[in-house]
Design a protein around this nucleic acid. Sequence first.
DNA 1: CCTACCGATCGGTAGG
DNA 2: CCTACCGATCGGTAGG
Lengths: 239, 239
Amino acid sequence: MRATALSLASLPARPHKTADLAPGTPAAVVTAPPPRRPRGRPRKTAQERSDGNRRRQLMDGAAQLFRSKGFAATGTRDIAAAAGMHSGSPFYHFASKSALLFAVMNEGMASAVQSQQQALAVLAPQAPARECLRVLIRHHFEVLLGPRSSFIAVMLYEWRSLTPVQRRRIALVKDSYEAAWMPALTALGQQGLLQAEPGVARLFIFGALNWAVQWFAPDKGKSLDELTEQALALFIHAG
Amino acid sequence: MRATALSLASLPARPHKTADLAPGTPAAVVTAPPPRRPRGRPRKTAQERSDGNRRRQLMDGAAQLFRSKGFAATGTRDIAAAAGMHSGSPFYHFASKSALLFAVMNEGMASAVQSQQQALAVLAPQAPARECLRVLIRHHFEVLLGPRSSFIAVMLYEWRSLTPVQRRRIALVKDSYEAAWMPALTALGQQGLLQAEPGVARLFIFGALNWAVQWFAPDKGKSLDELTEQALALFIHAG
DNA sequence: CCTACCGATCGGTAGG
DNA sequence: CCTACCGATCGGTAGG
């Protein structure tokens, strides 16, 4: 019975080859696919590696390659090799290299928005604005410099490699991520703890934090907690 | 006589085809070529367009293309066309596409260091640190967002496209540019006007300012003067 | 998901 | 600085 299941799995049903907003595709809402956790105990064997996991493996490899070499300098053959495939196989899962870039960015932003909401939900309802900003900064560092950071780094530095249509779609998710910062920033402004206009402050603050992907070295220098305190001290005046 | 000069100029002596630190070239000090202003009244005619000016035209076009499309996505044929040349001609002036990238970055950083020194020289010898920082920020915005901004933008966002040897060379110039900020930042720290550690503050501040290349729109939104005041207000606490 | 392949484009060169 | 060209590589596809 086990062998049968395996042999069936080795001939997987054709997975969804989504266009993922390749150039010219009309816009529609795309979110991260539901985790669809299986009922039984999870398997990490060859079984696990086939199916739809290959799609995620391609995205993981692509995210790292796009980050380190850039989108244009990364070949689809490199991506295939990173996922243990041969040259033409990525196109079985993604309609184009561009669709793969979009999938990486969309996955990165969608999960960032989700974890941001979870981080904010832990706050007390009447928490001071300074505390809210601390949570936002700390979470942002996690997303930006943590173990899955490639997805967001690609987002930040390969923006121009997107088609206009793809750009608009990602911008929607990005806007909602950034909008979550405004209540805290305007409150701090009203309290006199933030001396720049909130809109400009937001741009400067995101720049300061995002730039960390250029210089941050894990296991060396400051921790993410320490960086959070330093950033707070820099932006928020004595209260 | 004029015709003679023109016809002579149309057969220019072979210009210096510098390697400009193509991969593997050993390091040596490289600065912007001296302006060598000619004695007589300047000409803007066809004469002007030949000679060594072609080299600068290639760098100008390459800087803009590298900025808007990225280094890897820019073809040498695009660069040639931007300078009004045919496909193979850029290699008469630069040993490789990589050498052209290096030349763009080196020119950008060298002129930034130079104009920075000029900006600081205008300050009174005992000017307060806050005033010094204002000059540095204002000058940085000029370099970053002004008419020659492509050179520095390429510097910032194509770092990974350099070879390790090229990277080390540019890093030397960049270090001297950034080092000029430290006296003002440490002084402000001692005065209690800068609440983060000076070294970390420098990284955050550069990030905040550099990020402006992503969102700044000339002739729309704030002026460079206004942005300078907003940045100062954000970083430097009430004094 | 592999194999074999296509047309296009790329950086760079020789020879003038 | 142009012309003509080279070998390599690229994204993508057909057919299984």
